[in-house]
Design a binder for these strands. Structure first.
Lengths: 141, 141
DNA sequence: GTTGATGCAAAAACTTTGCATCGTG
DNA sequence: CACGATGCAAAGTTTTTGCATCAAC
């Protein structure tokens, strides 16, 4: 049996384990706009009686980011947060209040095109682009 | 004597202290493309015999970000990093290798325009926009 | 069977906080 | 001279690691 995750892992001599699948499945089921911290991933897996140790979650999140399956966010909510980078849904961008941390999401194709060009010019293989717009929200002005 | 920093602070009942000046000056002198962690800011200030406690540096970095003078980056190099957001130099974007962390910078006006629009549509007051392009660099492919 | 992955607990790294004191406005 | 800011040291978070055991290939 093959899977996108399995294929990517095997190419690198890495293994497809139940823990890795559980973490990725969690992101797939929760939807692509959600931002989860390592701790939250842990909690959710424990709740669904799929116990995976926190250490493994940290190791897995890093792996999935390096495989280009997750996106590591820094929205300054204390610690990193992660979101799914699914091929189906379009990349989205974040409008972030620098005072209270409130975030809004939006899409923009020109921005994606700019990312594509930048990667190409520098000889990089593109994974995804995201625009962070820092601003002050109406409540905090 | 007035200063941009001083004015911004006073408006909020906050004070212009030597420590705050030293931190901001460090970023101004080092140039706007540099990414410093709290620890690095501390080291550099100690070296230039301007001792400021690490606790104060953390407090100051947060303050300067909330004032819109520094930008908190998401480059995943372990801990947060900061760079100057000077009004003189144009906003720049980052092309980041998800494997090794190597980063390249580039500029793009259309991206800035997209940020401006997003902020306006949502009623936010724009501070700055930055595009993060995640990719795999030639060495890591 | 090899070798990579996991879990646990301990350690390291990063960041915040309480409180006495200092100094700006 | 009031009240915000600092420094210090202690506490709190977040993340990594060593090592024995387990399990994918």
């Amino acid at each position: 049996m093959t899977s996108p995750l399995g294929d990517g892992l095997h190419k690198d001599g890495k293994r497809l384990t139940p823990q890795r699948l559980k973490v990725l499945n969690l992101f797939e089921n929760i939807g692509s706009g959600k931002h989860l911290s390592a701790e939250e991933v842990h909690e959710k897996l424990v709740k669904s009686s799929s116990k995976v140790s926190l250490a493994t979650i940290y190791r897995t999140l890093r792996l999935l980011v390096q495989m280009g399956l997750l996106h590591e966010l820094e929205l300054s909510e204390g610690g990193h947060r992660y979101e799914l980078l699914s091929n189906g849904t379009p990349d989205h961008h974040h409008l972030i209040c620098i005072r209270c941390g409130r975030t809004e999401e939006f899409e923009n194709d020109e921005v994606l095109e700019a990312g594509k060009v930048a990667a190409k010019v520098n000889g990089f293989k593109l994974i995804e682009s995201s625009l962070n717009v820092r601003a002050i929200c109406p409540n905090c002005i």
